[in-house]
């Protein structure tokens, strides 16, 4: 599935990355804990969260996430969006809450990450 499909399924607004909507989404991980993101976000993972601070961008960048979806209509401040654009991380905002986001994407064929057994 591509980010463009995710955008359409979640009726999401693109905060950054219109030119990156062709990026492949391999897996999905949803959490509001940075430590969980660090362990479970693998390259190509789409991150779903209600956190909107710069840690989400740093984590997505360090773990090579394919994009970040901010739920519940939340939008990070301009500085955070700028961080995302400098790191080339596509950012989306959707009115759906976490459960519905996950449900809609799962129904469309996306799966979660297996627990990292490292």
């Amino acid at each position: 599935m591509k980010l463009l499909d995710v955008k359409n399924i979640l009726n999401a607004k693109v905060l950054f990355g219109e030119h990156l909507l062709n990026t492949e989404v391999k897996r999905v991980f949803a959490s509001d804990l940075i430590s969980e993101m660090l362990i479970n976000v693998t390259p190509g993972t789409l991150l779903i969260t209600s956190l909107t601070n710069a840690h989400v961008i740093h984590t997505a960048q360090v773990m090579d996430a394919s994009g970040v979806v901010f739920v519940g209509g939340k939008t990070p401040d301009q500085e955070v969006i700028k961080n995302g654009s400098m790191s080339n991380i596509p950012l989306f905002s959707t009115e759906y809450l976490i459960f519905d986001c996950c449900g809609l994407l799962f129904q469309s064929g996306l799966k979660g990450n297996k627990k990292d057994k490292h």
């Binding site: 804990l33 940075i34 430590s35 969980e36 993101m37 956190l51 601070n53 840690h55 490292h118």
Partner: peptide, 16 residues
């Protein structure tokens, strides 16, 4: 509130 403090820091360091 920032998404930290879940008590996973040192365990994550140990695990990795």
């Amino acid at each position: 509130e920032m998404g930290f403090g879940a008590g996973m820091g040192l365990p994550n360091i140990k695990q990795n």
